[in-house]
Simulated assay, not measured.
Amino acid sequence: MLKLVVFDLDGTLADTLADLANAVNYALARQHLPTYPVDDYRHFVGNGIDNLIRVTMADAYTPEGAVRAKADFQTYYADHCTDCTVAYDGIETLLDRLDTDHTATAVISNKPDRFVPEILSALYPRHTFLSAWGQRDEFPRKPSPESLEALIERNGYQKSETLYVGDSNVDVVFAHNAGVKVCGVSWGFRGAKELREAGADFIVNSAEELYRLVNG
């Protein structure tokens, strides 16, 4: 029986793509570098901000430039992280139903930690997550399993009663590295094909399907 559902954030609970793209494009433009269409960011995000800056700077990457770009990203994103960000269909109802069932929920994201609670409180103000972690200095980023293992242990759960839910191959590897089953969501940034090829234990196409899986 599942007692804990841990979610990824970007592409799983929230469509954050436009705000992420706008913030990175702002940082790139500040250094007179080319910017990208929003849809291109589907394949850039998921591995943390440092990797996102590195990939988008491309051949113009330098450590010094990356530091400036990261600072510009964070300054812009702090003011605009919920401008275009929206909840995916059915997720609020899903969280309400899991609350009613006394199924605990948590979040682990590669997004900088400071932005995670702000986005969750904007989109899901009446829901309380057991824990909501972004990228923290105490843990290496996903797909290292340390953050997921720590969250499960600190809250007194077992891996066998935990499900991780995400939208990318990084999420699949992350959960499997921790010895936890993973459900991929097809509505996210990467789609079902990537999740299937990465070896997701389950793939769902709607919040309703995810609820039935948790209660299956």
Rank of each mutant, 00 (worst) to 15 (best):
H102R: 11
C81K: 11
A60P: 11
I53W: 01
G90W: 12
E64I: 08
C84F: 14
V86N: 14
S121R: 15
P125F: 06
Q74E: 00
A69L: 06
Y61V: 06
A87C: 06
T82A: 11
V107G: 00
A106C: 06
Y76M: 00
S109T: 06
T103A: 03
D72W: 15
T105K: 15
A106W: 00
T85P: 02
L120M: 05
A58H: 12
L98A: 10
R114K: 13
A104W: 00
T62W: 13
A104T: 07
T100N: 07
P112A: 13
T75R: 04
E92T: 15
Y124G: 05
T93N: 13
Q74I: 10
Y88V: 12
A87V: 11
Y88E: 01
L94S: 00
D101A: 15
C81Q: 05
T82W: 04
K111N: 05
T105S: 11
A78C: 12
R126V: 00
D113K: 11
C84Q: 14
A66V: 06
V67R: 04
K111D: 04
A78H: 13
H80D: 09
T82H: 07
P63Q: 02
D72R: 07
I108G: 08
R54D: 06
V67L: 09
L98P: 03
D59M: 09
H102E: 11
A87Q: 10
V67C: 09
Y77P: 03
V107C: 03
A60C: 11
Y124S: 04
A58R: 10
D89P: 13
T62N: 12
Y76G: 06
K111M: 02
Y77R: 08
T56G: 07
E92M: 12
I119A: 03
V107K: 03
L94H: 04
Y77E: 04
P117I: 04
A78Y: 10
G65M: 13
L94G: 01
S121Q: 14
E118P: 01
T93F: 01
A58L: 06
S109K: 12
I119F: 09
I108E: 01
T105G: 08
K111E: 00
D99N: 05
R68L: 14
A58W: 04
A71E: 08
R68Q: 14
L123I: 09
T56P: 03
Q74T: 10
N110A: 07
P117T: 07
I119G: 01
R97E: 09
T75C: 05
D101C: 11
I108S: 07
A78T: 06
A104C: 03
R126L: 11
I91M: 09
H80F: 02
T75D: 02
T103S: 04
P125Y: 00
A58G: 11
E118I: 05
D89L: 12
A122P: 13
E92A: 15
A104E: 08
R114A: 15
